[in-house]
Write a protein that binds this DNA or RNA. Sequence first.
DNA 1: CGAGTGACAGGAC
DNA 2: TGTCCTGCCACTC
Length: 117
Amino acid sequence: MNTFERIYEIVKQIPGGKVATYGQIASLAGNPRLARVVGYALHVNPEPDEIPCFRVVNRNGCTSKAFAFGGEDHQRMMLELDGVIFTDDGRVDLDKCLWDGNVNTVKIEKSSDITEE
DNA sequence: CGAGTGACAGGAC
DNA sequence: TGTCCTGCCACTC
């Protein structure tokens, strides 16, 4: 599987009420340095209906302005509806809403749920 | 085919 | 603690 495909699968594995950082996804993708590729992957976002790019934030806990696919506030609303806590800084509370999929939740590398080739 | 850019992250100052 | 430079992979010109 290509790195791109892997990134997509990981992002799709993000549960509601939680968010993940580019670096985190990059680590799951194989290399923590792939953070840039992660951003690019979400940038193209071939399946926005399956890929919750709004759940992906940078290390600061916020998304870039270029991420304004429908308004920065729109993203915040989506996250709040998911149960994600926002700080007064207007950023995601990574301390409580950070996805712990890096521990032992995700396992797409062997999962046959991919069905994509 | 080669160089540059991009929704980032991490180390150094 | 905050800002700047570098590293990485994929895509475009």
